[in-house]
Design a protein around this nucleic acid. Structure first.
Lengths: 193, 193, 193, 193
DNA sequence: TATGAATGAGCTTTCATTCAT
DNA sequence: TATGAATGAAAGCTCATTCAT
């Protein structure tokens, strides 16, 4: 924290405020106060409030992608790779509840247009698509569109993360990661009868 | 439409505007104009803009619940009931893209606090929980928390609906409902080996 | 003043402030205070500050044109018509020093683009051009371009009005209107030798 | 240009920007960039933005006076001196359209108060007043106040210069300098009948 | 009861000026 | 001496809400 540069300070302050108060209650003055700088200073780093939010989105994606893609190895079997990837994804966001709030807010905002949404996810998407294609070729994964398979897994995990955050009391027993991964895998894998 | 009362007109106008322009670009003056009444009139029916949005949320939930719960019969087998319920859910939202936008916006807004979110979903939740419990007793469904099972199915389907709306080009082949239901069922059902 | 409508009140307030403090020191908040209304109210009548200033410009021109063109008669001889028109012009602005300040500010501002400047002057220009053409046909006025003749007269009179206002002490003896009109006429009339 | 000192560079940059973009759109940061120095540097030469603009005004006047007063000789006859002086004035500004814009902007700005306006013009005024007085003594020029005569000539010529710049299309035939000088002279000279 | 003009707090953004380097 | 990042006051504008009609 000691040597965080001003740009990062502003991004962090914005992230905190959006997560705590929502995108609607996040005026530049508050961001500035929370970042410990004048309001005008923000505009040296971001030309617009929209751009600040967009940059924050890309920043978050990068951090998440870095975490999720580290340690992945094609040497492992499909299922291991699947668990590794989505397990990392889930655990990263469990450990960073602020980021869950943020993604939820940002994805719903018109400021993050669909091109940007894509752009942010690209790195992670490419990796998971490679995994899905390998699985389909091996006959392990249902022969459905990548985008469809991907969205099912992503949607169920992210929605669960959100719910755990918004209504923590709901889950009396702690949710077991392996249960989740099994469900996600069962959803897309080929079942022999 | 002819005999829609003013309250409903206002709710409909709000729904249209939020879906088209986003919750952020939906001033009361615009709502009034679109609803064909004066701005002051809205305040006869809703004490506050927040309340208007909250009532809209409950209104939407009611309409959706009505559709999803109609025709359900305990006489059918678990899997049929599962397909019936979630199939209705999916098809209702496919046929009402405006509502997908709306739910997406409203769930992310701080105006819809978690109690309200629950309250809106209650009717549907009760039904699906009954279904899940029946399934678990029959040994067909994984013995995991209802809330967890429910969220997995709901999250994957809703996320997919959103994606189809936001980036329609993604899905070159039309998504088959039965594929979706199979995936959702496979995720939560017990697989014998 | 009792029954001045709000739009006019705002225009008058703007006129006062620009004349007294300059276009640069005329924030909407000041205008609102001086007009006795809230800042937001101005925007019900003028979509933009620029539009307010533009409408003020057209408003001023109209008032001036009304005054200068009243009582003109083609029955009079050229010189009489000349004196009548430019005399009215001069006396109107002598009686309305605020308007001199205003025109000076507005003509120099980029808000009043050249099309608008033209548009405002059009009525008066048409009349004076008719007069000049009649004079030229009668061999009384130099056969030069209308725009040139017009600008010479206009420029000298307006500049003088400005100077009288900005540095009233300069003119120890009061300036005689007839002297001015003689000079202006001498400038453009044909002199026999 | 090679040996222009920083102060002059800043003045020139300011002149360019005001002429191109207007006094309102001329922030110090832009001036600095255009002058090739840091924003802080400007404050070594000018204590304030207002002072910078005021100094620019005086700088412009000096340059113009130098040009207009060169080559004047009391040996010539009154009319020749008149034509020489105002001809120089007109031709200088025709050749320096930027300066026309600048004077127009600066005269209308509250930054150039009336004392400063006078101060800038002083040198030229003294010369033209001497000329007018000589002309009046010789019975050639109307016995009116110097300031009045001066303003008539100046106002008509400058207004014309401005119009030629702002709406060049107006003047289909090029304006002849001698026509202008004749008009200006006719305005103030004594006409025998 | 229904209206929509009026309000003013609060938003984003700009920019003259300062000051640590 | 020269720099340009930082500042924060002040600008234009929006909009939920009120209230006289």
């Amino acid at each position: 924290m000691i040597t965080m540069d001003k740009r990062e300070q502003i991004l962090e302050a914005t992230a905190d405020l959006i997560a705590e108060q929502g995108l609607q209650d996040c005026p530049m003055a508050k961001v500035a106060r929370h970042a410990g700088c004048g309001a005008g200073t923000i505009y040296r780093y971001f030309s617009t409030k929209d751009e600040l939010v967009q940059q924050l989105y890309l920043h978050l994606n990068e951090k998440m992608a870095q975490h999720c893609l580290s340690g992945l190895s094609d040497a492992e079997c499909i299922r291991k790779r699947f668990d590794h990837f989505w397990g990392s994804f889930y655990q990263f966001l469990r450990a960073h509840p602020r980021e869950v709030c943020l993604f939820d807010q940002l994805w719903a905002s018109p400021v993050i247009c669909s091109e940007l949404r894509e752009q942010g996810m690209q790195t992670m998407h490419q990796e998971i698509i490679r995994l899905l294609d390998d699985g389909k070729q091996a006959g392990l994964i249902k022969p459905l569109a990548d985008e469809l398979l991907l969205t099912m897994t992503f949607g169920s995990l992210f929605t669960l993360l959100k719910k755990q955050l918004q209504k923590p009391g709901t889950f009396t027993k702690p949710v077991q990661l392996q249960d989740l991964l099994n469900m996600c895998w069962d959803a897309i894998c080929v079942h022999s009868h």
